[in-house]
Every structure is written in structure tokens, then in C-alpha cells.
């Protein structure tokens, strides 16, 4: 039996020198912009002072990490980041798939185009605008409260931003509103590439609309779903910075602060770059673990995987 692994030989490299040179630029780019900055991680083990620089600052070992993990606030911040990350992931992920499938079932092409365009427009709004709209809509004189009071659901307006238990749902809702249409594009594209013969066959076998969605559309989307899920899981800790920063206030601080905000308050505002870096490293390490974990699970269950 022949060895299935194709060996890379010098001859082949010489043969592909054009591609090699082109690729070299990207490798250099990657090294310069992704790996060289990692040298800054040294800061996390120093008591870094801008005046003394990377080489002059005092080395303190794990001191900064000890401070981090003995800080109750940091532990709470991790909880918030994970909770909002998972909530956002689940909400936006499900909504995008459901929305794509429903939109695909619309038979009126014109109506479908309009809905699709309108639905992904919010993606292009910056968070400052989205949070501004939310702030106005949910304020005590805003449209939501006016409606609730007018229809007698509430007897007086409530201040949504004053209650910590509303904060995560508000953030998840904002994410869904902003990203559903945009995320659905990938699924819609995947749906168009499904072989129409499959649908015909399903019809012949007596499947109705639901049957076709369940037995044809969803299984065909599964590879796309898995890949996107793995990629998004690595992003769970990027639960957001702008939304929480812009919507948060003193009252909901205990549920609104994410790792990024913590890094900003200690790293930039308190000028403790070392502590900020340490928090950043922690975040990166967790993200790497998550993405490998998700990939491993996908591999185990025999699904498509990222690498």
C-alpha cells in the first residue's frame, strides 16, 4: 500500500517559488503584527512603568496574577463575561438560523429581499447609536414604558437600567437586534446551495413544509452550523465592551462589567499596565482552551471541524 501522506520536497518548493514568496509576506505580517506584540506579555510579570520601559521595570513574578485572583471584583467580572458571552452566543446563533430558515420559506421574492435588507442594516450601526436608541426607548419616558403604561400592563414606568436582573437580557436583545440579519446571510447562502433534487425527493416521499425543513434544510446546514459554532465559542469571552460600557451605570456595575472593562479601568485608568496585561493574558488563554475544546468535541462526535 502506498503512503497516503504526500511528502514536501525541496523540488516541489522550488517549483512553487512564486506561491512561496507570496505566502512569505503573510507569514512575516503574522509574525510582526501577531507574535512580536506578544513580547509585551512580559509586562504582566513586571511592575511596569512607562518611564522605565520594558527593560527597566521591576520583575515581580506572579504578583499581578495573585492580585487578580484574590480580587472579588475580577471573579465577578469573569462570571459576567461568561454569562453574557454564552447568552449572546445562544441568542444570536439560534435567532440567525431560525430567521434564515423562515426567510427561505417566503415565496414572494420582492418581500423576501426587502426583509433581508432591512434586517441586516442594523449591523452597520455603531454601538454608540444602538445604545443611544436603547437608552431612549427604555427610559422612563421612552416608548416601551409609555406602551406598558398605556395598555395597563404596568401602573407606573419602570427604570429598566436600574435593575441588575434586566441587564443581561437587554444586552442579549441588543445583540440579537443588531446581528440577526447579518449572521443569517451565511445560512441563507448555504441554503441556496442545497440540491433542489433533495426537496423534490422529500416531496415525493410525502414531506410537508416542516418535514422538508427538518429532514433536508437543517441536516444540510449542519456543517456550516458546526464550523460557525466552533469559531464563535472561541469568541465567548469577547462578550463585548462597548455595549456594557455604554449601557452600564453604578447600580448595575456588579453585572455589567466585563473583562475588557476591568482591563480598561485598571490598565488604562489606574495606569497599572501590568495588571491589565495579566487580565488580558487570562482572557486569551481561556479563549484558546475553549476553541480547542469545542474543536475536540466536534472531532469526537464525527462532525466537521475547524482544524
Amino acid at each position: 500500500m502506498k503512503n497516503p501522506v504526500k511528502r514536501i520536497t525541496w523540488r516541489e518548493i522550488a517549483h512553487q517559488k512564486f506561491l512561496m514568496v507570496c505566502a512569505a509576506f503573510f507569514v512575516i505580517y503574522g509574525i510582526v503584527f501577531y507574535y512580536v506584540p506578544l513580547a509585551g506579555w512580559v509586562m504582566a510579570f513586571q511592575n511596569y512603568k512607562p518611564k522605565d520601559g520594558l527593560f527597566g521595570s521591576q520583575f515581580v513574578g506572579w504578583e499581578k496574577f495573585k492580585f487578580l485572583f484574590s480580587d472579588e471584583v475580577f471573579l465577578r467580572v469573569i462570571r459576567n463575561t461568561l454569562a453574557m458571552g454564552v447568552l449572546n452566543l445562544v441568542a444570536t446563533f439560534l435567532m440567525a438560523i431560525i430567521f434564515a430558515i423562515l426567510l427561505n420559506e417566503v415565496r414572494n421574492v420582492f418581500g423576501k429581499k426587502i426583509v433581508q435588507t432591512v434586517s441586516y442594516l442594523p449591523h452597520f450601526l455603531s454601538w454608540i447609536i444602538v445604545t443611544g436608541i436603547l437608552h431612549d426607548a427604555l427610559s422612563s419616558t421612552g416608548i416601551i414604558n409609555e406602551l406598558l403604561v398605556k395598555f395597563g400592563i404596568m401602573d407606573k414606568p419602570i427604570n429598566f437600567f436600574a435593575n441588575p436582573s434586566y441587564f443581561w437580557p437587554i444586552v442579549a436583545f441588543a445583540n440579537v437586534w443588531k446581528e440577526t440579519g447579518w449572521n443569517a446571510i451565511v445560512y441563507l447562502a448555504a441554503i441556496t446551495s442545497i440540491d433542489p433534487n433533495l426537496y423534490e425527493a422529500a416531496t415525493l416521499d410525502g414531506a410537508g413544509r416542516w418535514g422538508k425543513i427538518w429532514h433536508v434544510t437543517l441536516p444540510s446546514l449542519k456543517p456550516t452550523i458546526m464550523i460557525l459554532l466552533i469559531m464563535n465559542i472561541g469568541n465567548v469571552l469577547n462578550a463585548g465592551f462597548e455595549v456594557q460600557y455604554l449601557l452600564g451605570n453604578g447600580l448595575v456595575k456588579s453585572v455589567s462589567e466585563t473583562i475588557d472593562i476591568y482591563t480598561l479601568t485598571w490598565g488604562i485608568s489606574q495606569n497599572d499596565y501590568s495588571l491589565g496585561t495579566a487580565a488580558g493574558i487570562f482572557k486569551s488563554v481561556v479563549a484558546i482552551i475553549l476553541i480547542f475544546g469545542a474543536n475536540w468535541i466536534a472531532k469526537r462526535s464525527g462532525e466537521n471541524r475547524l482544524f
Binding site: 453604578g250 456595575k253 489606574q270
Partner: peptide, 22 residues
């Protein structure tokens, strides 16, 4: 600054008050 325990306490006291006073 957060160099001293007092400075760290000062930042944290501020955070607690921000949340708890309202």
C-alpha cells in the same frame, strides 16, 4: 496611585460606593 495599599483601597472604595449609594 495603586502602588500603595491605600491607593488600591481608594479605588475599590470608589467602586463600592458607585454601586451601593444609589
Amino acid at each position: 496611585t495603586t502602588e500603595t495599599p491605600g491607593g488600591v483601597a481608594w479605588v475599590k472604595m470608589g467602586e463600592v460606593k458607585h454601586e451601593w449609594l444609589p
